[in-house]
């Protein structure tokens, strides 16, 4: 399933201007500890988090993640969003908490 399919089915907000929605998703990973995501997320994963500062971008880039989903209606810092566009990292948002969006994604994507 592509990122675009998931964005449409779950009504995720696309926050970055230059969002690439064509990647095929390999699953998703939920976590707010950056080194945990570094260790355990897989390339092509959607990353569910409440961290909104700009250091999330390097994690997404180094791990080749498909996109970041910010939960609970959290908004990225202005500099995070600007840098995300510069670095071609797709940032999405939802009003749902991490548990609910993870459950919905699990239903769509199944076992990793």
């Amino acid at each position: 399933m592509t990122l675009k399919d998931v964005v449409e089915k779950l009504g995720l907000r696309v926050m970055t201007v230059k969002a690439a929605l064509d990647p095929e998703l390999t699953g998703a990973y939920a976590g707010d500890l950056l080194s945990d995501v570094m260790a355990n997320a897989r390339p092509g994963n959607l990353w569910i988090t409440m961290q909104t500062h700009q250091n999330v971008l390097a994690v997404a880039q180094i791990k080749d993640l498909a996109a970041i989903v910010l939960v609970n209606g959290r908004k990225p810092d202005a500099e995070t969003l600007q840098k995300a566009d510069q670095e071609n990292v797709t940032v999405l948002g939802t009003d749902e908490p991490a548990f609910r969006i993870s459950g919905q994604l699990y239903r769509l994507l199944g076992e990793p």
Binding site: L33, L34, S35, D36, M38, Q51, N55, V56
Partner: peptide, 15 residues
């Protein structure tokens, strides 16, 4: 609070 300090940095390098 920023999500650092999981105590996984050095183990991640080793891994």
């Amino acid at each position: 609070e920023m999500g650092f300090g999981a105590g996984m940095g050095l183990p991640n390098i080793k891994r």
